Amino acid sequence: MALCVFAAPEIVVGAVIVVGAVVVAAAITEGLEAYERNASRERAKQTTQTRPSHAEEPVANGEPTPRGLGRDWFPPEPPELEPHDRRPECTPRRVPPKGGHPFHNKCADAIPGNAFRGANALVNGKAFDALQPATRRLWEVKTTAIETYNPFVQQMELAQQVEEGLRERELAAACGYDFAIGVRTEVHKKMLEEAEPRLTVVLMPWCK
């Protein structure tokens, strides 16, 4: 073997060159493979970081969900009617005026905001002289000149008006309405208020 080497040194040089080329090629291949592995890991990290979380996903229809209510939120139900509003007897109905007294009916029709002009408002079994829907107030009108009566008749008439007024007030309140008594004079108004402070008495300057 030694003789071959000494006899042909060019063979040794060629062998060294071939071995060196093989080593370099193996090193290059290993370097390329390591680079590919690093590049794959970097791409995987970027994909994980840029992927949106479930909480940040956009809503499909583009409409915002109310904060803190989640996807099962629904608009609130409309408020229910009050119990007295559901009772049929609490729905006002037009009925012919009672008594047939033209002056009395004229004063009742002239009450501001009266929605039942030319008629009475039947509510809870009682035919009231007028109804103001804007204030939910039912009215009874008194056109008698009670202050001109003799003391005995005056007291009897006053006691009757107070008794009727309290009963009518309760009927109106049971259906969610306010109640007022309309009178023509300050004297009559004062007499009713002193006899029963719970009654609302209103002077009717239009009733002349």
Score class of each variant (00 low, 15 high):
107 C>E: 02
144 T>W: 11
168 E>L: 12
19 V>K: 15
55 A>S: 13
57 E>S: 12
98 K>M: 09
25 A>R: 11
17 I>L: 13
76 P>V: 05
35 Y>I: 06
46 Q>W: 05
63 E>V: 14
124 N>D: 00
188 H>T: 08
124 N>V: 03
142 K>D: 10
93 R>D: 06
9 P>I: 02
180 A>Y: 00
152 F>G: 09
77 E>R: 10
143 T>V: 15
86 R>Q: 14
201 V>T: 03
188 H>I: 03
31 G>P: 03
4 C>W: 12
144 T>Q: 13
109 D>M: 04
194 E>M: 05
48 T>D: 10
72 D>L: 11
172 A>G: 08
197 P>D: 03
24 V>T: 09
185 T>R: 00
195 A>F: 00
13 V>P: 10
99 G>N: 06
21 A>S: 06
120 N>P: 01
95 V>T: 15
115 A>Q: 09
55 A>C: 10
179 F>W: 00
58 P>G: 08
77 E>H: 09
200 T>A: 02
4 C>F: 11
166 L>C: 07
47 T>Q: 15
141 V>F: 01
84 H>D: 08
10 E>G: 12
19 V>M: 12
178 D>G: 09
65 T>N: 09
31 G>W: 12
62 G>T: 04
142 K>E: 11
23 V>N: 05
163 E>L: 09
29 T>F: 11
30 E>D: 12
117 R>W: 00
131 L>M: 04
108 A>H: 02
112 P>K: 02
33 E>K: 13
135 T>H: 01
87 R>M: 07
95 V>E: 13
110 A>E: 06
71 R>I: 10
15 A>F: 12
185 T>S: 03
165 G>L: 00
175 C>Y: 03
7 A>N: 10
20 G>D: 06
150 N>R: 15
60 A>C: 03
10 E>W: 13
45 K>T: 11
43 R>N: 08
192 L>A: 03
42 E>P: 00
